[in-house]
Design a protein around this nucleic acid. Structure first.
Lengths: 229, 229
DNA sequence: CTAATAATTTAGGCATGACTAAATATCGTC
DNA sequence: GACGATATTTAGTCATGCCTAAATTATTAG
């Protein structure tokens, strides 16, 4: 029987649903549709409905769900999702800093291990790393109480103006893109001079290199930046 | 669908069966009974039969099994069992050396994580630790090719003679006993002067302490020693 | 060598979490 | 406001890995 804290079942699968919902609600906390969850999780829409019904039916449920109206996290669900996200990002940081993983490989390993580490493991790697605030992709690591500072970065594909920016974060969802970005020196903290931005090509220059780069939309879409103050 | 290398299914559960069989066959490689497996794994005997039949029926099976005659590992099964054991012991060493876990807590965490780490993780922690040969309980860590040097230690409860011994290893199966042993300075490498050995009490003196200790059979049974050369 | 006991296997179920196919709701457009 | 497209849910299956109860096979004592 899988572990539970309060009537809730707490499996790897449930964790993944909660994480996916957290990722999809966005800062405005919209309700999330079954289809978008199914896409994100790589399962059939019917499987999503099934799981959501199960989650919503437990006492102290992790989600609020009404049929045909999408789903949204309860306080307990958000707490759990943030805990798993904290695990994920701490593990990524640990793999990168302590075990010298290449950036593009930390995500997959963290994705597996995040479900199985103990509170002690979490605490120990956090201590070893000096309680980091950001993972190696530049994503913020939720504090133990679930607090996350709000984000003031924008996708590189959404800029209104040209100018000087700092790479805030890079997406961890595609190892290949990540490797290419890294090869161009585009990692969190890097400085970018963003020039022309046509809908399909993003032209810029990095701090380290004097010749201009041209990024595909895919590549640029994996980068978030903030103004170089 | 769970990962597989060669027709074999490769789940946490399967790993645990293989590890348990490996532990129970002993150095003489006896066949293992369903009941002993059931006891070790904490499942019903019928569940064991079920699993063994499934394992034996796959192409390139992990086990050889004939009904009513016990089970034994195939070459592939032994390879897999040793790989998981290597994971387990490397993780224990890592938790102890790098994350400063107390000795008696490494086992439980390793037991969970051993099933989910990648080859890369295994390789990286091994490198970080300088390719250790022994885990913090004093157990030998199988090499990548599965080789294990043979053991020349004996249970403290099985000694023929009194005299001077070195603690070879301590059992990891009971955290409480382990903590008590540690409190008495009985950890791998410690020197022991073994005196009287009645069937129920084991009297000895450690290198570090001048007054004699009296260990219960339970406690003594968790210790293996070798002659102080 | 047989009978009782112990070990093992068979049979039938259950929960989890996926799937497909079919039914039903909702939405956007005319 | 109705209709077709799309999204969602229902219904029915399946594999995994566990369970209990009942049947069967082995072992041991007399």
């Amino acid at each position: 029987m899988p572990s539970s804290h309060q009537g809730n079942v707490n499996t790897e699968s449930v964790d993944n649903y909660l994480k996916a919902i957290l990722a999809l609600i966005g800062p405005e906390e919209r309700r999330v549709s079954s289809t978008s969850l199914a896409n994100r999780l790589g399962v059939a829409p019917a499987s999503v409905t099934n799981m959501l019904q199960k989650l919503a039916a437990s006492p102290l449920p992790f989600v609020e769900y009404e049929r045909h109206r999408g789903v949204h996290l309860s306080a307990a669900g958000k707490r759990r999702a943030l805990e798993v996200l904290r695990h994920h990002r701490l593990i990524e940081t640990f793999l990168y800093e302590v075990l010298d993983y290449p950036l593009e490989e930390v995500h997959e390993e963290a994705e597996r291990l995040e479900h199985f580490i103990s509170e002690r493991f979490e605490e120990r790697i956090a201590a070893k790393l000096g309680h980091p605030k950001f993972d190696p992709h530049g994503h913020c690591i939720p504090a133990m109480d679930g607090k996350m500072p709000k984000q003031n970065s924008k996708p590189l594909t959404d800029l209104d103006e040209q100018g000087s920016f700092i790479v805030d974060s890079v997406s961890d969802r595609n190892a290949l893109l990540l490797k290419q970005l890294r090869a161009h020196g585009i990692i969190p903290g890097a400085q970018l001079q963003v020039a022309n931005s046509s809908p399909d090509d993003f032209v810029l220059r990095t701090g380290s290199d004097s010749k201009a780069l041209r990024l595909s939309r895919d590549l640029a879409g994996a980068v978030r930046v903030r103004p170089a103050h």
